[in-house]
């Protein structure tokens, strides 16, 4: 999916494979995905729940739970993330990569004030006085559009509204000026008006700070507003990836097409949105061949036997034996 730009990618992921070892056997949550992101680029990771998109985000920060193993390579600015440990790992987290979580109420410590949490983060990475750390925190809160930032510093999470909490969380993620932001469903827990404000904020930050972003979402609308490139995941694999506009305008993989069709639309008149029949397969018992074939309206003889690989066509790539007709 590298757009072919000569500059070295900020983050380059090769054949990432994530396996969970449970009592019921090994479970491959992510099966060999590759992508790269340049500075200031936004990648949208799209898929239904359980397709492996959040796990991918966690793996990038070495945050996988016990019992999970990541294979393949994650290369950030020339160094291998999978090899990082100790101080180098702490530096990488926070200083190089920030993360925004889905539910700001659970991602903020309920018993510490916003200021305390931000100062703590700053002090973990830099030698600063509490005074100047608070000032920096206040500046960043101001930058994320927090009303009355100096007073919010002494506020506790329960005293803030949902939108303010998410702003505070974003402020904490960008406090150390990371070059990459991983946003895992950053707007899912918010109501629609606040959602729009947060999207606007992320757009602004991306432009102002040349922040690269990995946006993990099941909401195609959010991805359409923020992403440059998009990767559609199904059962741990990329089924279609490429330039966001191209993919959304002319989806080639039947799954992408199905996702786009399932968005309620005003222009399509009285026609109700169409869902994709069936549900996500049990990752312990994936169907043979293409994992999507039992739900696929375009399945052909080949599909239940041969796993399709990603093939490039134009500016998008897709993994399908019988793709939707191109433009």
């Amino acid at each position: 999916m590298n757009t072919g730009a000569p500059q070295a990618a900020l983050l380059e992921v090769r054949d990432l494979e994530i396996t969970f070892f449970s009592d019921r056997g090994a479970l491959t949550a992510v099966d060999g995905i590759s992508f790269s992101i340049g500075a200031g680029e936004t990648l949208g990771l799209v898929g239904e729940s359980g397709c492996g998109k959040s796990v991918t985000g966690a793996a990038l920060l070495k945050l996988l739970p016990r019992g999970a193993k990541a294979g393949g390579s994650i290369c950030y600015a020339g160094s291998e993330v999978t090899q990082l440990s100790g101080q180098a790992l702490q530096r990488f987290r926070g200083k190089e990569v920030g993360m925004v979580f889905q539910d700001p109420l659970s991602a903020l410590n309920p018993v510490l004030s916003i200021g305390e949490q931000m100062v703590e983060t700053l002090k973990a990475h830099e030698v600063v006085s509490s005074q100047s750390a608070r000032l920096r925190a206040q500046e960043v809160l101001d930058a994320v559009g927090m009303p009355d930032p100096s007073r919010v510093l002494s506020a506790y999470p329960h005293e803030l509204s949902g939108g303010m909490r998410q702003r505070a969380l974003i402020a904490m993620a960008i406090l150390l000026r990371p070059k990459l932001l991983i946003a895992d469903e950053p707007t899912t827990a918010l109501d629609v008006t606040v959602q729009a404000q947060i999207i606007e904020l992320l757009q602004r930050l991306r432009a102002e700070q040349r922040l690269a972003m990995i946006l993990i979402s099941h909401d195609l609308g959010v991805v359409a507003q923020l992403a440059d490139i998009v990767a559609v995941m199904y059962a741990g694999r990329f089924v279609e990836t490429g330039d966001m506009r191209a993919v959304f305008k002319h989806p080639r993989h039947p799954y992408t097409a199905g996702l786009l069709r399932s968005i309620p639309s005003l222009t399509r008149g009285a026609d109700l949105s169409q869902g994709i029949p069936g549900s996500v397969p049990d990752p312990l018992h994936l169907p043979l061949g293409c994992a999507f074939h039992p739900r696929c309206p375009r399945a052909i003889d080949q599909c239940p036997t041969v796993i399709p690989s990603l093939i490039a066509q134009g500016i998008t790539r897709f993994a399908c034996h019988n793709p939707e007709p191109g433009s």
């Binding site: 945050l63 702490q90 979580f101 659970s106 410590n109 703590e120």
Partner: peptide, 23 residues
């Protein structure tokens, strides 16, 4: 999640126990 958030922010295990769990 706030423990994960602290980890992402680069806190050490003792820092997380002392600064987040004990409070």
């Amino acid at each position: 999640e706030f423990v994960t958030a602290a980890k992402v922010a680069g806190c050490t295990p003792v820092g997380i126990v002392w600064g987040h769990l004990i409070p």
